[in-house]
Amino acid sequence: MDFFAGSLISGLQLGSIYALIAIGYSIVYGILRLINFAHGDLLMVATYGAWILIARGLSLPFAVIGSVLITVAFGLVIERAAYRPLRDAGEEATLITSLAVSIFLQNLFLMVFTPKNRAFALPGFFSEKLVLGGAGSITITNMSIVIFVVTGGLIAAVSLIIKKTRLGIAMRACAENSTAAKLMGVNLNAVVVFAFVVGSALAAVAGVLYSGQYVSFNPSMGFMIGIKAFAAAVIGGIGSFAGAAAGGVLLGVLEILFACYLPEGAGVYQTAFVFLVLIVVLLFKPNGLFGAAEGRRS
C-alpha cells in the first residue's frame, strides 16, 4: 500500500476525531469565552461508560447511546456546578476552574477504575479491511470508514443546527453579544446548556471512536487529547465552527505525517510538534487561520 496514502488516511482519521472535539470547544468558547479543559476528559468518561455498558451486555449501538447520555449528564453537572457561578468572572478564573474540574474528573475515575490501561474491544467487523482501487491499492479498515462517515455526518448536522435553527441563531447571537441577545428574549442559560449538550455529545462520540480505533484507554487519556484538540481549535480560529473543524483535521494530518516521515527518534517529539505548530501559527495569525478579530460586547 502506498505509504503516503496510508499515512494520510491515518492522519485524516485522527484529524476527524480532533475535529469533533475541537468543535465542542469552539461552541462553548464562542458563547462563554470559556476554555473547558475538562472537555477532553469527557472523552474518557464516554469510553469508560461505553465499556461498562458493553460489559453489562448492552449491544454496541445502545452502549454508544448510553455513553453519550452519561457524558452529557457529566457535562451538564459541570456546567451548573462549576462554570455557571463564574459566569461573570474573568478569563483566568474560568481557566483555572476548568483545569481543576479536569483534575477532579481524572482522579475520580482513577480512584474508581485504577490507573490500569484497559482495552476497548470492538467486534471483529471493525477491523476488517476493505481494499480500494486497483494497482497501488489502498487498504482501509471498516473502522476508518465508520470514523469518516460518523464525523462527517455529525459535523454536517451540527453545522446545520447552528446555521438554520432558531436555537443555532440564538447561539451565534449570544456568542457575539450576550446582552443584546438577552434583550431579544433569548434565555442565555438555556443556550449555554444546549451548547454543553452538543459539545459533550460530540466529545462522547469522539471518545468511543478514538478508543475503538486505538484500543487502549485509561483515566488520563482525555486530557492530552483534549489539549491537542484545543490547540487545533485555536489554530483554526477558536469561536469559528469551520475553523475548529478544519483545524482539527489539519492537525491530525500534520501530526501523523510528522510521525511517519521524520527521522528516527524525532517521532517522540510528536506532541511537542503539535504545540510548535500552534506557536508558529499564532505568531503569524494571532486569531488562528480562520479566526475573526475578537471584538465583543457583552
Binding site: 441563531i169 443584546a180 434583550l183
Partner: peptide, 25 residues
C-alpha cells in the same frame, strides 16, 4: 422590549437573522 444604547445589532449576522432573533419568543 429594550432597544439598547448604540444599537447593539448582531453585526456578524444578516439583517434577516437579526429580525428573526427579534421574533425569538
Amino acid at each position: 422590549v429594550h432597544v439598547p444604547e448604540s444599537r447593539q445589532i448582531f453585526g456578524r449576522l444578516s439583517v434577516a437573522e437579526n429580525l428573526a432573533l427579534g421574533g425569538y419568543r
